[in-house]
Design a protein around this nucleic acid. Sequence first.
RNA 1: GGGUCACUGGCAGAGUGGUCGAAUGCACCGGUCUUGAAAACCGGCGAGGGUUAAACCUCCCAAGGUUCAAAUCCUUGGUGGCCCGCCA
Length: 414
Amino acid sequence: MIDVKLLQKNFDETASALMRKKVSADIITELKTANENLKTAKLAYETMQAKQNELSKLFGQYKKEGKNTDELKIEVDNNKATLNDLLETQRAAEETLDAIIMRVPNIPDADVPDGADEEDNIEIKKVLTPPAFAFTPREHWELAEANGWIDFERGVKLAKSRFSVVLGMGARLERALINFMLDFNRERGFMEVSVPMLVNRRALEGTGQLPKFEDDLFKIEDEELYLIPTAEVPITNLYQDEILNAAELPIKMCGYTSCFRKEAGSGGRDVRGMIRQHQFHKVELVAITRADQSDAVFEEMVACASDLLSALGLPHRLVTLCTGDLGFGAAKTVDLEVWLPGQNTYREISSVSNTRDFQARRAKIRYKEEGKNLLAHTLNGSSLAVGRTMVAIMENFQQEDGSIIIPTVLQKYL
RNA sequence: GGGUCACUGGCAGAGUGGUCGAAUGCACCGGUCUUGAAAACCGGCGAGGGUUAAACCUCCCAAGGUUCAAAUCCUUGGUGGCCCGCCA
């Protein structure tokens, strides 16, 4: 969540930054009022509590000295009643503030371009040239079925639409990709972790998926557990409620998990093929850093994803997301879009974000430096989405006869 | 899933209704001593909120409750150990 103190102290500046991310002026004002109300309520409650504590001590003294406590008891009882009222007021104020602030997105970095949607994202650079074909390149679902790599119908039979089954060489390629990605990232200093794919509410609040995006999550019936939409959730929350030593930062991790998304609101987009599935595999990078390290680690993570694509021989481009396309928790995001000849366009395959202290404040991830506790910065990025990488391999390396050449870096994993 | 015992500061570990945010030891930080280090000695040393700074408030797994007063008593939940059951 955002720093309310900052809003309080620096109202105009913070408000206009939030408005770049389409937060209404009303909500910002509400937030400010709610915070002021809470402060007042707290002060009143604590003052009364101080009095009560004092009276209690006095009571103990009276008892010890054998003095009469009747009168004191009345005073203490009265006090208690007001104390309870004040506590109620304080709790209500807390709830009000919480309800608002948990739904307010992060403040975008100053250098994030203004814009309405993905049309306004800014291309940073292109890497590798899209291949030229002597024939009309086909889309991945045709290739996948022709090669017997993916069975879309049977996936639907087992679960529902947007589920598929990968088989034969397709399944082996998937496994090879995962191993290749994990090794690649580990060599760049990202420690491999294997984490739960079901998490509780607290974890999802920590990284910002809840309370606002409940509709996109699969929830386990009768349990406070959800299927993770990304490994960012369990990996980042590994350090929830912890105070780390400044010297042990940055902590850089990578993990492979399945991810589950309801894709509510994605309408009829990408219904065909495996671009947008309810369940997909992803290797994720997560970093916990000191405040002064996050920019450098961010670049490292972008390079990691880009170099991985290059190693696979996949043409791609890097774009900086504009304010309108920026995710809820991100202060800054660079997307990597891979070239898909079948669709004749670049499609997102990785997204690297710096959330600065937004998640850390929610999840209470801090570090101690020179005796002070400071909020950490958290970053996450895909490296890469496995299904989409398979799509890219199929489309970029397809031959006229429909066969697919597998990148040489993957040979040893097959 | 059932039973049972436990959960206190970085760690170990006292504290079982009142001045306890919490003894003591270890670790850690600063100082004295020393050519330097070790040892010894002296001092400091949990977290969050709040304040210019203080005062003050909260936190002894969590949430409730009893009480004028809870680390201490009660209830529920969580986690861990052991026993039983079940299982990949």
